[in-house]
Write a protein that binds this DNA or RNA. Structure first.
Lengths: 200, 200
DNA sequence: ACCTATCGGACAGTAGCACTATCCAACGAG
DNA sequence: CTCGTTGGATAGTGCTACTGTCCGATAGGT
C-alpha cells in the first residue's frame, strides 16, 4: 500500500508518518519507483506500536528508536534477552551508585544477578527521590513492595517463556514492560481504595 | 529568609523560584515591605517537594498545582481522603468508559467501591492501550497483576493509617502514590531478572 | 501524449512546557 | 548617598512532537 493508504488505515496523518520515517522509528517501504514506496502489514503494526508507546506509554521518539532497534536486531540468547530488553527501555541511567540498602535488599531476596547493574542504580535513585520528597520508606516496607513486584514479575516471565521464538520473547518483554506499567499503576490506585474500604 | 537565601538553601535558582511563585506551586512569603518577603521552613520543604515531583516523578507544573492545592486545603474525612488524593493526581481522565472485563475483575476482587469511577476508566484505557500495542493480556493474568498490586496497596494503606492527622495522611497518600510509583517500576524490572534467573 | 492529483523528500514553522534572561522601580545595608 | 538586591512584569530559550509549505517527479485516467 502507499503512504496515504497507510495513513488511512492507521489514522495517523501522512505528515506524521513522514516524520516517523525521518526519525527512524518506521522502516522505509519497498521502493517501487523513485517517488513511490510500498508499505505492508508490518508497517501498519509498527505504526500502531509507535502510537501506543507515544500516547499511552509516554515514551519519547528517541527511546522508541532504541526499542524498535532492539526489536529489529537479531534476538540474543534467552540468557541475555532480559538485559537487552531492559537496556532498550527508557529510564535506565548507567553509571550511578547503588546504595547499601538496595544491595542488601536484593541480596536478601536472592536477586544477586544485577546487584551492581543500572537497574539497581535506578532503584537507588528512585528511593532517594522519594525520601527527598518527604516519603518515609522503611527497609521493611521496601521489601514488601519488592515481594509484591516479584509476584507481578512472575506473571511477566511466564508470559515471556510462552513465546515461541526468541524474537517474539524479546517483543513480549519490551512491550509487556512498557505497556503494562500503566496498567499496574492504575491497579495500584484501585487496590488502595479497595483495601482501604475493606479495613474501614 | 529572603528569596536569595531560599535559592541557596534549596539549590534552585531565584528565577525558578519566581516562576514557581507565578505558577502558584509555591505560596508567597510574608511581605515585610513592598519589595521584600520572608520565607520559612515550610517554603524550603515545598520547594523540595516540587523539585522531587518534577525531576523524578515527571509531574507537570499544572498537576503539581492540583497536588499542592489538595495538600493545602482542609483535609477531608478519612472516608473521602483517598478519593480526594486520587483526584488530585495526574492521569485520571473522567468520563471514560469502563469495560465489562474490568468491571468483572474489580467485582471478583471485592472492590466494588469504584467500579464506575475514573480509576476504573483509567484501567480500562491502559488495558486497551496495551492490547492495541500488541500485548496479549488475558483476564487471568490481569487478575494476578491485580493481586500483586493489592499486596503493594496494603503497604500503602498501612503507612497512611499510621499518619497522626488527616492532613498528614493526605500528604502521605499523595506523595506515596506519586513518588513510590517509580520505585515499584524499578523493582518490577529487577524482579523480572531475579525471577528469570531463578527459573533459568 | 497530456494533465492533474498524489508521492517522496527537504526545510522551516508551531504549540506546549519548564524554565531563563532582561528590565525596571523600589528598597535597605553600609 | 550609593550600589547591590528584591519583587514584579514581560519576553525569550531549548526541547519535543509534530505540522505546514514547497518542490520536482511520476502514476493513472483520458
Amino acid at each position: 500500500m502507499r503512504i496515504s493508504e497507510l495513513a488511512e488505515v492507521t489514522g495517523v496523518p501522512v505528515h506524521t508518518l513522514k516524520f516517523y520515517l525521518r526519525e527512524g522509528v518506521l522502516p522505509p517501504g519497498a521502493a517501487t519507483s523513485r517517488t513511490r514506496a510500498d508499505y505492508g502489514e508490518a508497517h501498519v503494526e509498527r505504526v500502531r506500536l509507535v502510537r501506543a508507546l507515544v500516547e499511552h506509554g509516554g515514551v519519547s521518539i528517541g527511546d522508541i528508536r532504541s526499542i524498535v532497534e532492539a526489536l529489529d536486531s537479531p534476538p540474543p540468547s534467552r540468557h541475555e534477552l532480559l538485559g537487552v530488553a531492559h537496556r532498550a527501555l527508557p529510564g535506565v541511567t548507567a553509571g550511578a551508585e547503588v546504595s547499601a540498602e538496595v544491595a542488601d535488599l536484593l541480596e536478601s531476596l536472592g536477586w544477586t544477578t544485577c546487584t551492581d547493574g543500572p537497574l539497581a542504580a535506578g532503584l537507588t535513585a528512585a528511593v532517594a527521590a522519594a525520601r527527598a520528597a518527604g516519603v518515609e520508606l522503611a527497609p521493611a516496607e521496601l521489601r514488601r513492595y519488592a515481594e509484591a513486584m516479584r509476584a507481578a514479575a512472575e506473571v511477566d516471565v511466564e508470559v515471556a517463556l510462552r513465546a515461541t521464538s526468541a524474537a517474539d520473547a524479546l517483543r513480549t518483554v519490551v512491550l509487556g514492560t512498557v505497556m503494562v506499567d500503566p496498567v499496574l499503576l492504575a491497579l495500584r490506585r484501585i487496590a488502595q481504595e479497595g483495601v482501604s474500604a475493606e479495613r474501614g
